[in-house]
């Protein structure tokens, strides 16, 4: 991997957004994901390489550390922020078609539920791994999911729920989504959700962490 791509991956892994950001303290004053991504583009590196061999690698590393409880939510949020700042530079290439995203992923926390930390982490991690993400927010009804799928043909859907009272809403949303678009894969997650529950309601995939969602989505386009 070229040195600058490794540096970009490192900035994402450790949440170094830009030169100005004081975080992490031991990288104070150094260039961040923001400047390095711009520099990489200026030196002629392919945007696709910057995404897949720089940003994605950084997100993957932090995802694994989070799964292993080596870092916590603030660190992952910082990584995601570094990644999304860098992605801004790549957006024109997504629009022009120079960089192909792996697909579109629609995500939301189900109706009645306001917890969004986990959903946001999944959303950021999936985006950081080269997918376009449509985040519908919290308290999302079946209708909203169905409309978003209509607007984004070929997309897949992630449902998040943190309450035992709202996870049951997943079943209804799943039915509506499948009725409107049988080929859409539905991934579910959130603390009370389990593999058993997934089987019971007939969702396509369950993962206890964002990394699992990324791996599953990537397997769909491999």
């Amino acid at each position: 991997m070229s040195e600058i791509l490794e540096k970009i991956a490192y900035c994402v892994e450790f949440g170094k957004i830009n030169q100005q950001s004081p975080y992490p303290p031991d990288m104070k004053g150094q260039l961040g994901a923001d400047e390095l991504t711009k520099e990489a583009l200026d030196t002629g590196l392919a945007p696709e390489d910057i995404l897949k061999k720089g940003l994605v690698i950084g997100m993957e590393r932090i995802g694994i550390k989070f799964r292993e409880n080596k870092v916590f939510v603030p660190q992952v949020l910082m990584s995601a922020k570094a990644m999304s700042t860098a992605i801004e530079h790549l957006k024109p290439f997504f629009q022009s078609g120079d960089v192909k995203r792996s697909g579109i992923f629609i995500i939301g926390t189900v109706a009645g539920d306001l917890h969004d930390i986990g959903k946001n982490l999944v959303s950021m991690m999936v985006e950081g791994n080269g997918w376009e993400v449509v985040d519908l927010g919290t308290d999302v009804s079946a209708d909203k999911f169905v409309n978003a799928i209509k607007d984004n043909p070929g997309s897949h859907v992630g449902l998040s729920a943190l309450l035992t009272t709202t996870m049951i809403n997943m079943e209804h949303i799943l039915k509506e989504v499948k009725a409107a678009s049988p080929e859409t894969r539905v991934l579910i997650g959130g603390a009370p959700v389990s593999e058993d529950f997934k089987n019971k309601i007939g969702a396509d995939f369950y993962s206890p962490d964002p990394q699992g969602a990324v791996e599953y989505l990537n397997s769909l386009v491999a």
């Binding site: 949440g15 603030p74 910082m78 930390i117």
Partner: peptide, 11 residues
């Protein structure tokens, strides 16, 4: 906001 506050502690 949770996400914002958690990041502000860092930034």
């Amino acid at each position: 906001g949770v996400g914002e506050m958690l990041m502000q502690m860092m930034i």
